[in-house]
């Protein structure tokens, strides 16, 4: 097995498992709320339905609106294929380090926000404004937690960071714990989950992500939905990669890859289950408390930085 083939398997896997992950979260939530739920395959069924449907577009929609789904989808997919899931050192993982990865997602968001404004409805602009504002406020926390992570590995390349964690002896690192908490908080915000945004709401006035894609239909909508699912899985994989990479394989042999796959599924499922529990027990934040939440994430990651210098470097 060559590393290139694992790379392809990995990217396709993230793409295909993404709806399952979304379905898994909603099933978990349903069970936690004493409901049966629609099953893990429901997002797949939704996508299939949407792909079959006709596209309806407003009269004055411009090419920005038309191409945005493709840009969003490919930028997200590109970001996803950079993240190692099974094999530590994949050919594409050097294409972009963590900062570039975040920038790729920012590119997707930029076009999504523009698409939201293209039709010229109040809701689209509202969603774009909220999304861009909150993602901007999330950025410092994101960078700070990347910074903390890169301190011990001296790198922002995912492969190097993972290798560093795998090769260093197990130790308790308060700084990493802080960085992880901050990263999880940011991931929740970036993916528009409760308590920041409610992915299942039908109330236009409270939406963020959904407000921007309100005008989409058919395959365009399917692509955007799919991209959002890929993003969720991407962040889960990223968190798993950075904090609990054990089980990933360094060689592209079959057994290693299979074991890595199994462990990856378990780890990601665990993380997503935690997300489901979290979402069940929380209500959405008031809109103007979101900045406080994000600055909280920043403070936590900064504490990680400080505790790194205070406790881990040693005097």
């Amino acid at each position: 097995m060559s590393s290139a083939s694992v790379q392809i398997i990995q990217a396709v896997m993230l793409l295909l498992f993404a709806p399952l992950a979304a379905g898994f979260v909603s099933t978990c939530k349903a069970r936690l709320q004493n409901r049966r739920g629609a099953g893990v395959l429901q997002p797949w069924r939704n996508l299939r339905k949407l792909f079959k449907k006709e596209v309806v577009m407003a009269h004055h929609a411009s090419w920005v609106f038309r191409f945005a789904p493709y840009i969003v989808f490919t930028a997200t997919l590109m970001a996803a294929s950079v993240v190692p899931a099974l094999l530590v050192d994949t050919p594409l993982s050097l294409t972009a380090d963590v900062i570039a990865l975040v920038a790729l997602l920012a590119l997707a968001r930029f076009f999504l926000a523009l698409a939201g404004m293209d039709i010229g409805t109040a809701f689209g602009g509202m969603g774009a404004s909220r999304e861009m504002t909150f993602s901007a406020l999330a950025e410092p926390a994101m960078l700070m937690s990347i910074f903390v992570l890169s301190l011990s590995a001296h790198s922002t390349n995912l492969t190097t960071m993972i290798t560093h964690t795998l090769n260093s002896p197990f130790a308790l690192h308060p700084s990493l714990a802080f960085a992880m908490v901050a990263m999880v908080m940011i991931a929740v915000a970036e993916n528009g989950r409760i308590p920041i945004d409610n992915p299942t709401t039908h109330l236009e006035l409270t939406m963020i992500h959904e407000a921007m894609i309100l005008e989409y239909s058919g395959r365009h909508l399917a692509l955007l939905e799919w991209a959002a699912m890929v993003k969720l899985l991407l962040f889960s994989t990223l968190i798993v990669d950075l904090f609990i990479p054990w089980g990933m394989t360094a060689q592209a042999d079959l057994t290693g890859v299979v074991i890595a796959l199994g462990l990856w599924v378990v780890k990601v499922a665990g993380l997503l289950f935690v997300l489901a529990v979290f979402e069940t027990s929380m209500a959405k934040l008031r809109l103007f408390e979101v900045p406080e939440y994000l600055s909280g994430a920043f403070v936590i990651s900064f504490l990680g930085l400080l505790s790194y210098y205070m406790l881990e470097v040693g005097a």
């Binding site: 308790l172 308060p174 505790s307 406790l311």
Partner: peptide
């Protein structure tokens, strides 16, 4: 001893976290 040290460090970090949390 190393683990004890790490645990103390970890608790120190959590101590800092609780102080911030109290504030917030």
């Amino acid at each position: 001893a190393a683990l004890v040290q790490q645990l103390v460090d970890g608790f120190a970090a959590l101590m800092l976290l609780t102080s911030f949390a109290l504030l917030a």
